Amino acid sequence: MSDAARIRIWDRWVRFTHWTVAGIVIWDLFGPTDPLHRKLGYAAAALVGLRIVWGLVGTRYARFSAWWPTRSHLHAYWRSLAAGRPLHHLSHNPLGGVMALVLWALVLALAFTGWLMRLDAFWGEDWPQVIHTSLAIALEACVCIHIAAAVVMSVWTRENLIAAMVTGYKRRHARHTGNTAERER
């Protein structure tokens, strides 16, 4: 694909936080529950916190203003999916935006409940562990949905979303109009 046919969407910080948090999540979901698990969980929460700050002050497509999933954007996107012609979004599509927010909330909630389990005030209490485990299961389910959706949408729209999160580039469409959605041709 020529440079004229592609556009830089995801900056290095977005890609670094995405893949680093993804790696930490995979390790913490399937690795041992040891001191490293706890440290990595806190690191993931810190990275999510920094990514949220970057959503306020970062580059154009990293900012929430580029992809915040409003009700009207969600309805328009659902309609385009139902019609078999998904709207093209340079940044996250509205459902991807919802998933990003859910994943971030789960990572932050897991770090918080993990911290709660270490407090003397809750020594011997089961409920922090029960909540932590439930959140981990929810995160695992959301990660599976996120990966499946990225693969399905990459095939459906013929735009490799996973490669875009690696390289930072997405395909520029002929009807590109900035941050707004556009119909696939």
Rank of each mutant, 00 (worst) to 15 (best):
D3M: 06
A4M: 13
A5H: 06
A5E: 15
R6M: 07
R6F: 12
R6K: 10
I7G: 02
I7D: 01
R8K: 09
R8A: 15
R8I: 14
R8W: 11
I9K: 01
W10G: 02
W10R: 07
W10P: 00
D11H: 08
R12W: 09
R12L: 14
W13S: 06
V14R: 00
R15W: 05
R15Y: 05
F16K: 01
T17P: 06
H18T: 08
W19Y: 10
W19F: 08
T20D: 04
V21T: 07
V21A: 02
A22E: 04
A22H: 01
G23R: 06
I24F: 09
I24D: 00
I24S: 03
V25W: 00
V25T: 05
V25L: 07
I26S: 08
W27K: 03
W27I: 09
W27N: 08
D28H: 01
F30K: 00
F30N: 04
F30E: 02
F30P: 00
F30I: 12
G31P: 10
G31D: 14
P32H: 04
P32K: 02
T33F: 12
D34L: 00
D34Y: 04
D34T: 01
L36E: 13
L36T: 12
H37S: 09
H37T: 07
R38T: 11
K39R: 15
K39C: 15
K39G: 13
Y42K: 08
Y42W: 14
A43G: 08
A44F: 05
A45S: 10
A45D: 02
L47T: 01
L47R: 04
V48M: 06
V48S: 03
V48L: 05
G49A: 10
L50C: 13
L50Q: 11
R51N: 04
I52Q: 09
I52V: 09
V53C: 13
V53L: 14
V53E: 15
V53P: 10
G55S: 09
G55P: 05
G55D: 11
L56D: 10
L56W: 13
L56K: 01
V57P: 10
G58F: 04
G58N: 06
G58D: 12
T59A: 09
R60W: 15
R60L: 15
R60F: 12
A62K: 02
A62C: 07
A62E: 00
R63C: 07
R63N: 08
S65Q: 11
S65R: 09
A66H: 01
A66Q: 03
W67R: 00
W67A: 01
W68L: 12
W68H: 07
W68V: 11
P69M: 05
P69T: 04
T70H: 04
T70R: 13
T70V: 14
R71H: 11
R71L: 12
R71E: 03
S72D: 09
S72P: 04
S72F: 11
S72N: 08
S72R: 02
H73I: 04
H73M: 09
L74G: 04
L74Y: 07
H75W: 09
H75R: 12
H75D: 09
A76C: 05
A76H: 10
A76E: 10
Y77Q: 06
Y77P: 03
Y77I: 00
W78C: 11
W78L: 10
R79W: 02
R79G: 13
S80N: 15
S80F: 06
S80D: 13
